[in-house]
């Protein structure tokens, strides 16, 4: 099956529908149309971080203070954030939902068949970290967004959503 581009307004609606109050981000080329909408949004606050490791800790701090954050990063940032995913999100048992863009993925292939190591190793890494993930391969998969927050709360830990192809 070919992954379909998700329109930015539909992804934003799903994020809003999940009750997200803060998007903690390091910019992702793959999701730039969503970022454009988010930065103009009056209800959802964006918090810009220098590194994805920081974004994990900021998200945890927001949760302590009673907010409902979501992380938005690129796959390269997943690799950069591993220490805090382990030490903060997993050990601290924080229900953090991560929206991760699979920049450069061949939409005709499963991520694990991709030529790019950044795409190919993403789900195996999440599996190693015991972080459940769900692929958003088109608008029909957007139900995973709200469900990921329920899943994160139930397991007291992080859940990842992988944006399969560039948003439109």
């Amino acid at each position: 099956m070919t992954a379909q581009s998700i329109p930015a307004d539909q992804l934003l609606s799903a994020i809003r529908g999940a009750g997200v109050q803060d998007v903690v981000l390091v910019p992702d080329t793959h999701q730039r149309t969503v970022l454009d909408l988010l930065m103009d949004d009056d209800e959802i606050r964006t918090i810009h971080c220098s590194t994805e490791d920081e974004a994990v800790a900021v998200s945890a701090g927001l949760i302590i203070g009673g907010r409902r954050p979501m992380m938005q990063i690129q796959h390269a940032g997943l690799y950069a954030s591993v220490n805090n995913l382990r030490g903060v999100a997993l050990d601290g048992q924080f229900p953090i939902v991560l929206l991760i863009g699979l920049l450069g993925r061949d939409p005709e292939l499963e991520p694990e068949e991709d030529g790019s190591s950044m795409v190919r190793l993403c789900r195996p890494l999440l599996e190693t970290l015991d972080i459940p993930s769900h692929l958003l391969d088109g608008p029909d998969d957007l139900h995973h967004v709200a469900e990921a927050f329920d899943e994160a709360a139930e397991r007291n830990g992080p859940v990842a959503l992988l944006v399969g192809t560039t948003t439109s």
């Binding site: 803060d22 903690v24 918090i47 971080c49 490791d53 920081e54 974004a55 994990v56 800790a57 900021v58 998200s59 945890a60 701090g61 927001l62 949760i63 302590i64 203070g65 009673g66 907010r67 954050p69 220490n83 805090n84 382990r86 030490g87 903060v88 050990d91």
Partner: peptide, 22 residues
């Protein structure tokens, strides 16, 4: 009191998240 134990370097941004929420 909170503590950054087991993720050296994370104290400042954990505190930032709390500050922005409170």
């Amino acid at each position: 009191n909170l503590a950054c134990i087991g993720f050296m370097g994370g104290a400042s941004t954990l505190g930032l998240g709390v500050a922005l929420s409170q």
